[in-house]
Design a protein around this nucleic acid. Structure first.
Lengths: 356, 356
DNA sequence: CACAGCTTTGAAAACGATTACACGTAGATG
DNA sequence: CATCTACGTGTAATCGTTTTCAAAGCTGTG
């Protein structure tokens, strides 16, 4: 493969000049510049980013380690991060931790060895020694969506506390009294936060907090189904189930359907995380939507700030309740099938769902 | 950051020896090996993959350029590719072309500059000059899911012809006579193939091929909705709609619902591509599932074969009809809500939906 | 004891770019 | 005319590894 040397020879100049043209750094005569560019064209020269990175100690690349690539929340997040980074001239290398600390560490290690300029991490439960090391060494690191306790790392996340309060109030207003929650893992900051917000919301509405109405799941569909089953098997089953993420909501939905129960007739269903196809379910699912695009954008900006040595503040955005029909009251006066916008859609979306 | 030199000094050996230990290449005394490893540990040494790649001219990295990261088909594909590649000691860098040739080229270029060892490409419609160049230069390239005409590149894909035949026969057997299709872009090999299979299947069933029953879409939800609208506005509207991919099926579903039509009562609905939540819709959608995991795996293997200079054959797997209830006949004797396996689930899946 | 054969180790040359520094030339200035 | 300045360009060092080649150390044998 042609190198800068070949280009130089062909253009009758030195490698330094070629490099200067390619990075339009110093002044170069219009004429030599043209000659060099012609040579580049003729040889089909493609700069070797590996060599460049070695010399400049910069890769124009950031790493993104997400929790689970099959979870639409993370997919959308990845997409947003990617868009923003590309805009700033950075590539993104995605690692899928699959919610396993060991695999998360595999990617963190690989990305560090590849010398990414910065790292966006949605940390899994445990604080692994590796992550601790990275934090200690002060590499440009930003947590996204989730935090880890006791580590001083800037975090970009959404706070659902208010929205969960609204949701519980919404349910209570519709006459639901036995509201249950299928929680995420207590080890995850997002899991904890949602559970705490839920119990606080119950108290705020004057509803009793029953431990058996909080079933632990792991953010995966199967655990949502199992949690719902345990709830519905109780001597006094709930009249509303709130799932801690979209996958568990799906699981709960399956269990409710399998028992031939009607939504929202027999039991209301709501979900944390709003995903595109919730509007297509029958009934459409009431959900708490996070400003995913904005999260991705802000995370990238925060990371670039850290990379460039600018100070960075933590970012906390608000999640928002999106009322649909799975909790009872028809919220959409236009009737079924009318376009139902998700949180953020059409608001500050620069390129929504691709008009093409 | 500590380098191999620092490790060498600390261990009292030369850099060559350190390298040997780290790559356990030649023989090294157990004692010196231990000393080196200790030094590595103490210094928290992390090898610089950039330098290593420069020297060895190998990055242990493959590129994957997919059509649309928000399309669950591609997400699942990415996941499968990633798993297989990791197993073989390779990292995957994903690029999201967003179905735009210009963005596809951006990633192809970037990945080549980063000197990936091989490239997995789901090509967008046009044959861009860049792609032509890459093919000419003979870089390790494998097409995935889609082909480009006139280019001699090994391809790994699924063929839905037989399954589409089955689907049309299934519809015909249920008494549907006016079967319509919302097609993908004719520029994409997958779009063309499905349309051709559809008309062939109609003929095979002795049904008329009406041009107005084939509406062109672009694999995005909005076009599916528009296509369905045009179909339902016909003087003689169809009694079955088959959508060319999962996103357009979603659009069609919306349009049908918006008109207050019953599925399958008034109109049957089927989709090419099976996605996890089709089973959660009411009614569950009959779909043609591709062996996505297997596609990903085979693509990686084919690419590694090319990289290692082994000969590689094109791979064509069969898509499979998954009958559910959106076309009429209750296909699932266990009744609603019973576990409904997707194509490939539990078959040769090595790690299905993560038992955790 | 000398020497061959084997193992373990080190010195130095790559890999392909960027960039500090020096050099030559031309026009401007005293 | 001598000198200065500014500009365009080239030479060579450098980034952190891997790897070739040779040297040094050891063992065993004739």
């Amino acid at each position: 493969m042609a190198g800068v040397k070949d280009v130089a020879r062909r253009a009758g100049v030195s490698v330094a000049t070629v490099s200067r043209v390619l990075n339009d750094s110093a002044r170069v005569t219009a004429e030599t510049r043209a000659r060099v560019l012609a040579a580049v064209e003729e040889l089909g020269y493609r700069p070797n980013a590996v060599a460049r990175s070695l010399r400049t100690d910069t890769t124009r690349t950031i790493g993104l380690v997400i929790g689970d690539i099959l979870n639409p929340f993370f997919t959308e997040l990845a997409r947003a991060v990617e868009d923003e980074a590309r805009g700033a001239g950075y590539s993104v290398v995605i690692g899928n931790a699959d919610e396993r600390a060991e695999r998360q560490d595999h990617y963190v290690r690989t990305l560090l060895e590849q010398r990414v300029d910065g790292l966006l991490l949605c940390p899994t439960a445990e604080v692994t020694p590796l992550v601790r090391d990275v934090v200690r060494d002060g590499g440009p690191l930003v947590f996204l969506d989730r935090t880890l306790p006791g580590l001083d790392v800037p975090t970009v996340r959404a706070d659902g506390t208010a929205a969960i309060g609204e949701l519980v109030a919404h349910l209570a207003a519709l006459g639901r009294r036995r509201i249950a929650f299928v929680s995420g893992p207590a080890l995850l900051s997002t899991g904890r936060e949602r559970t705490e917000a839920f119990t606080a919301a119950l108290r705020a509405c004057g509803l009793p907090v029953r431990p058996d109405y909080v079933q632990a799941g792991d953010f995966q569909a199967a655990s949502g189904r199992a949690g719902a089953a345990r709830l519905l098997d109780l001597p006094e089953p709930p009249d509303a189930i709130f799932a801690g993420d979209n996958l568990m909501a799906l699981g709960a939905l399956d269990e409710i359907r399998a028992r031939g129960l009607a939504i929202p007739g027999d039991v209301a269903l709501a979900s944390y995380d709003d995903v595109p196809w919730f509007t297509h379910l029958d009934p459409p699912i009431t959900a708490i939507g996070q400003p995913v695009q904005e999260l991705g954008r802000r995370a990238v900006r925060a990371l670039l700030d850290r990379i460039d040595g600018r100070p960075v503040e933590p970012v906390v955005l608000d999640a928002r309740l999106v009322v649909r029909r799975s909790c009872g009251e028809p919220a959409d006066p236009a009737g079924p099938g009318a376009p139902d916008e998700r949180h953020e859609q059409g608001s500050d979306e620069t390129e929504g769902r691709r008009p093409r």
